[in-house]
């Protein structure tokens, strides 16, 4: 059994990143507003990036492994591109349908 009051930094970051991913998935599954779904997507992305750092600490202790940090920076840039496209599409959706509710934007099932 894990003692949550006595965690190392790496373990704490790993747990919190798992928690963030769970929160993001929950947001995408339950929310019906497009903006909230995109926020959920971004929360997952943050959790995943945090996990990179957590794994670097977990693996190498206090010594910093530059690979993980380099990869995290690149993946933040990619998330930026993704959310840019997502928000642009959301804008088009709003102009077309005058709503962001995925239940009302229906020809498709979500």
């Amino acid at each position: 059994m894990i003692n949550i009051f006595n965690l190392s930094t790496g373990e704490a970051l790993m747990l919190s990143s798992a928690l963030l991913i769970a929160v993001g998935l929950f947001a995408i599954i339950t929310r019906r507003n497009l903006i909230r779904m995109i926020i959920g997507l971004e929360i997952i992305a943050t959790g995943v990036n945090l996990n990179f750092i957590a794994m670097s600490i977990f693996k190498h202790g206090p010594n910093i492994d530059p690979t993980a940090h380099a990869l995290t920076v690149i993946s933040i840039v990619l998330d930026g591109a993704l959310v840019g496209v997502a928000l642009a599409l959301t804008l088009v959706v709003y102009r077309k349908f005058k709503t962001l509710d995925t239940d009302e934007i229906r020809k498709l099932r979500w």
Binding site: L25, L34, L41, I44, A45, V48, N51, L82, L89
Partner: peptide, 22 residues
């Protein structure tokens, strides 16, 4: 939009697996 949200979650799950592999 639908494709973006579903596929975006998929890419992020792949990235999570990559962090675990790392």
């Amino acid at each position: 939009m639908k494709y973006l949200i579903m596929s975006g979650v998929g890419s992020l799950l792949v990235l999570y697996a990559i962090t675990l592999v790392y």
